[in-house]
C-alpha cells in the first residue's frame, strides 16, 4: 500500500508538471457547457443568423428537463469525443516508461508489479476524474441555470457510477499497455473496445448486466430517476476491472 501511494504521487506530480490538470479540465468544461447551450438556444441562434433554409424546428417541441440535458452531455459529449481525448491523454502511461527503461529500473527496486499497475490505474483514474468532475459540475450549474432545478446529490451519485466506467476504461488501457508496445495502438485498441462496450450496452438491459458499460445503464436510471434502479449493474464492471488488472499483472512479465 505504501509503495502504491508513493508511485501514485509521482503520477499526479507528473500530471501537474505536464499541465494536464489544466487543459483536460478546460476541455471537459468546454464539452460540458456546449450541450446545454445547443439544447437551449439552437433555435435562437439559427434564427438570429437569418434563418438557414432547409432546417425546420418544431415549435411545439417541449423544452428538455435538466437531467435529460445532463444525460445528453455525458452520452453525446463525454462518452464520445471526451472519451477519445481522455484515452489518448493516458495511452502512453506505461508504454512510455517501458520504452525509456524507467519501468525496468523501477522494478529493480522493492516494488511489485501489482503495486506498479495499481499506481498507474488509480493515478490516471484520479487525474481523469478530477478533470471530469470539475467539468461536469460546471456543466451541472450551467444546465440548472438554463433548464431549472435538479438535485445535486443525485447528480453526484450519477457521477460516482460514471467514475466506475472510467476506471474500467483506464484498466483496459493498462491491460493493453502490457500487451502492445506502441502507445498509439494501445490508444486505438482501448478506444475501439470502449466504443464496442458502449454500443453493446445500448442493445438491451439484460445484456448490459454482463457488460462493464452496464454501470452506465445504472447511472442513467439514477439520473432520470426511473424506478427500475438495479445495483446488480455494479457487479460486471468490477469483475472486468479485476480481470484487466490481474491480466496486466500476468502479462507484464516481471518477477
Amino acid at each position: 500500500m505504501r509503495n502504491i501511494s508513493i508511485l501514485l504521487k509521482v503520477e499526479l506530480l507528473e500530471a501537474v508538471r505536464n499541465i494536464k490538470f489544466i487543459w483536460l479540465t478546460l476541455f471537459f468544461t468546454l464539452l460540458g457547457v456546449t450541450q446545454p447551450l445547443i439544447d437551449k438556444y439552437m433555435e435562437v441562434i439559427i434564427k438570429s443568423f437569418g434563418g438557414v433554409e432547409g432546417i425546420m424546428i418544431d415549435p411545439n417541441a417541449p423544452e428538455p428537463q435538466a437531467n435529460e440535458v445532463l444525460l445528453a452531455t455525458f452520452s453525446g459529449q463525454f462518452n464520445q469525443i471526451g472519451l477519445i481525448v481522455l484515452i489518448i491523454s493516458f495511452m502512453g502511461m506505461i508504454a512510455n516508461e517501458k520504452n525509456s527503461g524507467v519501468q525496468g529500473f523501477i522494478f529493480t527496486r522493492p516494488v511489485s508489479s501489482l503495486e506498479y499497475i495499481s499506481s498507474k490505474l488509480f493515478g490516471n483514474w484520479l487525474i481523469s476524474m478530477v478533470c471530469i468532475a470539475i467539468g461536469s459540475f460546471i456543466s451541472y450549474f450551467y444546465t440548472v441555470y438554463l433548464f431549472g432545478y435538479y438535485p445535486i446529490v443525485d447528480f453526484f451519485l450519477f457521477l460516482v457510477c460514471y467514475s466506475v466506467w472510467i476506471l474500467f476504461v483506464v484498466s483496459t488501457a493498462v491491460l493493453f499497455s502490457t500487451l502492445i508496445k506502441s502507445s498509439m495502438f494501445i490508444g486505438v485498441a482501448t478506444i475501439l473496445l470502449s466504443i464496442i462496450f458502449l454500443l453493446a450496452g445500448n442493445i438491451n438491459s439484460t445484456l448490459s448486466l454482463f457488460l462493464p458499460s452496464g454501470v452506465l445503464t445504472l447511472a442513467e436510471s439514477l439520473l432520470l430517476q426511473t424506478h427500475d434502479i438495479n445495483f446488480l449493474f455494479m457487479i460486471a464492471p468490477i469483475v472486468y476491472i479485476l480481470i484487466n488488472v490481474y491480466g496486466a499483472k500476468a502479462f507484464i512479465n516481471q518477477v
Binding site: I19, F27, L30, V33, V44
Partner: peptide, 23 residues
C-alpha cells in the same frame, strides 16, 4: 444579429476556447 441576446450565452464557450488557446 441580436448580439445582446446571444453574447451572454456564447461568452462562456468563447472564454473557455480562449483559455485553452492561451494555455
Amino acid at each position: 444579429v441580436d448580439w445582446s441576446a446571444i453574447l451572454p450565452l456564447v461568452l462562456p464557450i468563447l472564454i473557455l476556447h480562449l483559455l485553452l488557446l492561451v494555455v
